[in-house]
Design a protein around this nucleic acid. Sequence first.
DNA 1: CTCGGCTTAACGAACGTTAAATAAGGTAAG
DNA 2: CTTACCTTATTTAACGTTCGTTAAGCCGAG
Lengths: 200, 200
Amino acid sequence: MDVNPAATRVDTRGFILQQAIPLFAEAGYSGVSMRDISRAVGMSAAALYHHFPDKQALYLAAVNHAFVDKAEGIRQALAGGGTAVARLERFVERFTELMAKDPDFRKLLHRELLDGDVTRLKLLADQVFLEPYKAVVALAKELAVDLDPYMLANSVVGLVLFCFETEPLRRHLPGRIPSHDRPATIARHASTLLVRAVAR
Amino acid sequence: MDVNPAATRVDTRGFILQQAIPLFAEAGYSGVSMRDISRAVGMSAAALYHHFPDKQALYLAAVNHAFVDKAEGIRQALAGGGTAVARLERFVERFTELMAKDPDFRKLLHRELLDGDVTRLKLLADQVFLEPYKAVVALAKELAVDLDPYMLANSVVGLVLFCFETEPLRRHLPGRIPSHDRPATIARHASTLLVRAVAR
DNA sequence: CTCGGCTTAACGAACGTTAAATAAGGTAAG
DNA sequence: CTTACCTTATTTAACGTTCGTTAAGCCGAG
């Protein structure tokens, strides 16, 4: 009887999350209504309550859905051998590509950093970011023993993310050329800057 | 008759903006209602419409109010003489202090980068960020002729801002010590990293 | 007396959420 | 094989609340 307990014929729950993620990424929690989501999914707003107890739970599930496998991708970007500098360059390049390919993840992350309450951020820290963070910190420790590895790790990802974050503003500032927003250019710039900084 | 055209006995309009800024910074445009603002100001929601035609105009005025003089502070942080490296270090230190002292400005900036529509970002770019941006780019040009000055300028402010942005998350990650969030520490880290990167 | 600044009261729309009804599919009994 | 039934997924309709906004009136200063 409970052979297939929670699964409907198709994965409606997953489909709802998939449709909700870009909405929340673009407009934030309070900028998206249950009716907005229902419209994107193609069913009534009331039906959403068969899959999630309330809006907050839907949002939380959507954020989780957007974040879980991303951590694995970041971990993979850190795998492999070579010198510390080579691994740094490889990580920066793959991380940049990852962020370029999934703007929803990036926006949700920025939104969580702005809006996330303490319990939600603690959850994200423990379940999503802990492992890749430790790995980047370990790499930072190898790179420059005389720099704080935690701050250096933060700077590595910050140099990449800030380029994406400011793109909508830089679009209207002088001197900007299209290549400034190509992932390869961003990665090369961040890598160059970091490698020079840690070179003895 | 029009000796004191727009000013009431006290500057009610300015007071409203002053009270609205932290609300918008904390919860964003759609997370703050006109009644929220009226409660913070201490008057009825309807009274707000005597000073602003609608919520959008109030929000826009609040963002402007929060941003205008900030640009002047940034410009001042870039003033003065000395070698390019010395001016970089001074700018990073003062900019970091500026951001630490006014978290509302920083949060509003991040929100605008996430939510701002094209016309609003164009306005901000032209009226607020153009001048300080050009100044930082000019400094970047002096610092490292073989790095893209626009990307380097972006990295200078990004290294500082990203520390503040990730603080609520790093609070729950291992290895963090209180000094990581002291402005002096942030500035020193960013300066060290940048100076090493541009040193020949 | 006038007029700007404010109030209370109210509008229609949209919000999150719930209730009741319907349709569809699987299962067990006849 | 059919019938009755139960569960699940969904619908329409509606609930009370809050939203942005407006209208009408009060009140104190020039």
